[in-house]
Design a protein around this nucleic acid. Structure first.
Length: 510
RNA sequence: GGCGCGGUAGCCAAGUGGUUAGGCAACGGUUUGCAAAACCGUCAUACGUCGGUUCGAAUCCGAUCCGCGCCUCCA
């Protein structure tokens, strides 16, 4: 079965056929780095990270280009407020964004071009568009602007299904007030905007200025991937005008179809509203990392199909703690997967993976898991179904662990179930790989989650160890009243105790 | 006003013409000193509303209600 992807351009799920067999050119619109990246950004880039991992797992060689918009009015304005150099601000924020995206498991794109180092390419395209009549220079008090003439590009509106007259009608109120008579048509958009004499900008054939918002993506895509690419993606909010304008200027320049497949991720919402800087209802990735495990966040994101809305809940507790219930639930699932894997690893010992003739039902789930995940992703990245495969695999894994003691007396069965456990570990890793989950070593996962959960509750591990040891003595002495009292006491501050035959372990509740 | 997205059992969320999604919560069980975890079972003859097409519709068509997004910066 071929890879199938929803294409915004055709509004259909289509078989994915790359321009060059076996190779994929992917361009993802990156972040404008004027502030910290938020959880909604994280969702989009997690989606495309899974796309890349999945396509590679399906054997494609993927060139993933993701730009960094480090030149933009917002950056200039924010820098002015802070008395900072715009490029210094965007460099700083860009590095933080990279770190935060990496922390939530997004593999580094193949290339990450920046606007500030793509000015030559932007000028080249702009000049070509002027030469071929698709763009024109307009004088302003600050200098020269360059605009793209929307009416002269016949395909304008094909991505977002808009026509110029509707747009004009909808925008008429604003345009009347806007006083933009330097444009031939109010809907023409800037390729280059003049900067005042002191303002931040770059030299160009039209004087000092800055690129318009959309042109940088065309220039970076041309430079890194060529005039045509397979997949172009970004958030839903980029469909219009950003991607529509990218298509117009790119295709007017090259005469070729810019991108074959357009993919757009749905919004992360708070209280049924899009999470956005402008609405002030955002939670940064750093906030998320502060409270939850990065893989818990990823699991949470992948629990909803990428094109649908995803609601991000924030809960304020009476004791003053603020938690993200959806992330907590997802993180508990990561605990489950890591715990399951630990138990399987311990059972497998040094057995080699194989498919022994034992526990047929579980063995079959183990054998099929990886391919079932890939088949789910074949269907327009159906990550919720992929996670359901992990749930089945986890159950099968725990069942194998549970059945193991019954096999001990029979050496053949004992050997067989260890091999099955080893297979299950391998299957779990293989099934998680295209999703970018379970990328940590188990010890590291438990250490980092324990450290974070202790910190959030203001608890101290050695104090808990001491209490648990005290309780252990009480248990040994069969003083169960005392043991239960300590369990209750610790339970009230969020410590859960798990008893084994002669020892106890503990965990901080989420 | 134009263009688009969504409304599925207590909650989250797949499915998009006929046979188990999955998770969480709750409850019953196996296990346990008691618990927890794990596993098994129940909740699940659910699909916003009203019509239509069909042997058969959550799924297709029409109408309609509700929520949201884009059309101004946005992932």
């Amino acid at each position: 079965m071929p890879v199938r992807l929803y294409n915004t351009l055709t509004q259909k799920i289509e078989d994915f056929v790359p321009l060059t067999p076996g190779k994929v050119k992917l361009y993802v619109c990156g972040i404008t780095v004027y502030d910290l990246a938020h959880a909604g950004h994280g969702r989009t880039y997690t989606t495309f990270d899974v796309l890349v991992r999945f396509l590679r797992a399906r054997g494609f060689e993927v060139s993933h280009c993701q730009n960094v918009t480090d030149v933009d009015d917002k950056i200039v304005n924010r820098a002015k407020e802070r008395g900072e150099d715009p490029l210094a601000l965007s460099k700083r924020m860009g590095e933080l964004a990279d770190a935060h995206l990496e922390a939530i498991g997004c593999a580094k794109p193949t290339v990450m071009p920046r606007v500030s180092t793509t000015i030559d390419g932007i000028v080249d395209i702009t000049e070509k568009l002027i030469r071929n009549g698709h763009a024109y220079v307009a004088e302003t008090p600050q200098g020269n602007d360059v605009y793209f003439a929307v009416r002269d590009f016949p395909g304008y509106g094909k991505l977002s299904r808009r026509n110029l007259d509707d747009l004009r009608a909808g925008a008429s109120e604003r345009l009347a007030e806007g006083a933009t008579d330097i444009k031939k048509d109010p809907l023409d958009f800037a390729l280059w905007k003049a900067a005042g004499p002191d303002a931040f900008g770059f030299d160009s054939p039209w004087g000092k200025g800055r690129p318009g918002w959309h042109i940088e993506c065309s220039a970076m895509a041309f430079a890194e991937l060529g005039e045509q690419m397979d997949i172009h993606g970004g958030g839903m909010d980029l469909v219009f005008p950003h991607h529509e304008n990218e298509i117009a200027q790119s295709e007017a320049c090259s005469g070729k179809e810019f991108a074959r497949y357009w993919m757009h991720g749905g919004f992360l919402e708070i209280d049924s509203e899009k999470m956005a800087k402008s609405l002030g209802n955002f939670v940064t990735i750093k906030d998320v990392l502060d409270k939850n495990d990065p893989e818990g966040y990823r699991y949470f994101v992948l629990g909803t199909h990428y094109r649908g809305p995803l609601s991000f809940d924030v809960e304020k507790h009476p004791d003053g703690r603020v938690t993200f219930p959806g992330l907590d639930e997802a993180e508990r699932r990561m605990d489950y997967l890591y715990a399951t894997r630990d138990a399987l690893v311990s059972l497998a010992g040094d057995a080699e993976p194989s498919e022994p003739n034992i526990l047929q039902g579980q063995a079959q789930i183990v054998a099929e898991a990886k391919e079932k995940v890939l088949e789910a992703l074949d269907r327009d990245l159906n990550t919720p179904v992929a996670l359901s495969v992990l749930a089945e695999l986890g159950k099968a894994g725990n069942e194998i662990v549970m059945q193991a003691p019954k096999m001990r007396k029979d050496p053949a069965k004992n050997e067989a179930i260890k091999k099955l456990a080893a297979s299950a570990v391998r299957a779990l890793d293989a099934a998680c790989a295209p999703l970018g989950l379970m990328q940590a070593k188990s010890d590291a996962y438990w250490a980092r989650t324990r450290e974070r959960r202790l910190r959030l509750r203001g608890l101290d591990a050695s104090a808990i160890d001491a209490k648990v040891a005290e309780r252990g003595e009480a248990r040994k002495a069969k003083d169960f009243a005392k043991a239960d009292a300590i369990r209750k006491e610790l339970g009230e501050v969020g410590v859960e105790i798990f008893d084994a035959a002669d020892t106890s372990s503990w965990k901080i509740a989420l």
